[in-house]
Simulated assay, not measured.
Amino acid sequence: MTSWDIRPSEVSGVLSKAATAAEGLSKAGQGVQKTLPSAAGAAGTISGMYCGPAPSGPVGAALAEFANKWGADLQYVAKRTAASLNGAAEATRKYVEGDLELAANAQHEALAEPKIDMPGEGKK
């Protein structure tokens, strides 16, 4: 990186707005995670009411499959967002301190792929 020309106060304003948006996304994700299981259960079953405990029906199974995939994606987005916001803030702090090398390092580290550990996954 040969030169930087940023306005830290403007970076702070953008980071604040992005953090507010990320918080809204997080609340929406938590709401879906909370209500999706009951939606799957209410979707019906593939056996009648006189057959004992019924397995999940096709809609419930599809919702469960969606939730499994969606959960991993949501965790990825959350970690990527946090890394980006924290990296931009750290790079800006280093810029203000006059340490452009550490600012560039902070910016570079924020670009690393986040590691997602889903519950129940085995070691690979």
Rank of each mutant, 00 (worst) to 15 (best):
T35P: 00
P53C: 05
A28M: 08
D73S: 08
K69Y: 00
Y76W: 14
L36M: 07
G52Y: 06
P53R: 15
V96K: 10
A112H: 11
A19Q: 15
M118D: 03
R93K: 15
E65M: 12
G13T: 12
G120M: 03
S84D: 07
A82K: 09
R80C: 01
A42D: 14
E97L: 12
T20W: 06
P58V: 01
S26M: 03
V77H: 06
R93W: 05
R80Q: 11
K124P: 11
G31E: 13
G52W: 04
Q75K: 14
S38K: 12
K115P: 00
A89H: 06
D117R: 12
L102C: 00
Q75E: 15
L85M: 08
A40V: 02
G120F: 03
G13W: 03
L63P: 06
A61Y: 02
T92L: 02
C51R: 12
V14Q: 07
A43V: 03
A110I: 04
A42L: 13
P37R: 07
S84M: 10
A112S: 13
A54N: 13
L102M: 06
S16C: 08
V77F: 08
E65F: 07
A83G: 10
A21Y: 10
M1D: 10
S12I: 02
A42I: 06
K123S: 12
G44E: 07
Q107K: 14
Q33S: 15
M1A: 14
D73A: 09
N105W: 01
P53F: 11
D117K: 14
W4E: 02
D99H: 05
V14W: 04
G122Q: 06
A88G: 06
A67H: 03
V14K: 08
K124M: 02
A88L: 09
K115A: 09
S3F: 07
A61I: 10
G87C: 02
Q107P: 01
A18E: 10
P114K: 03
L36Y: 01
E90V: 00
L63R: 06
I46P: 00
Y50R: 15
D117I: 09
W70G: 03
L63C: 11
P8I: 09
G57E: 04
D5S: 13
C51Y: 09
A72C: 00
E23A: 11
A18L: 15
M49F: 10
G57K: 05
P53Y: 13
A21V: 12
A42Y: 09
G44L: 05
A67M: 05
T45Q: 08
S3E: 11
G120K: 04
A43Y: 02
A106Y: 02
W4F: 12
L25D: 03
K17R: 15
K94V: 01
C51M: 12
M1H: 11
D99F: 04
N86A: 14
M118Y: 02
K124I: 01
P119K: 14
G98D: 04
E10I: 07
A83C: 00
L74T: 08
A67D: 13
A22S: 13
A72H: 07
A67R: 07
N68R: 12
E97R: 07
A89E: 12
R80Y: 05
P8K: 10
K94I: 00
E113H: 05
R93F: 07
W70S: 12
Q107W: 14
E121C: 00
G57C: 06
Q33H: 11
E10S: 12
K124H: 06
K27F: 01
T81N: 07
G122E: 08
P53H: 15
V96T: 14
A22Y: 04
G122K: 09
R93T: 14
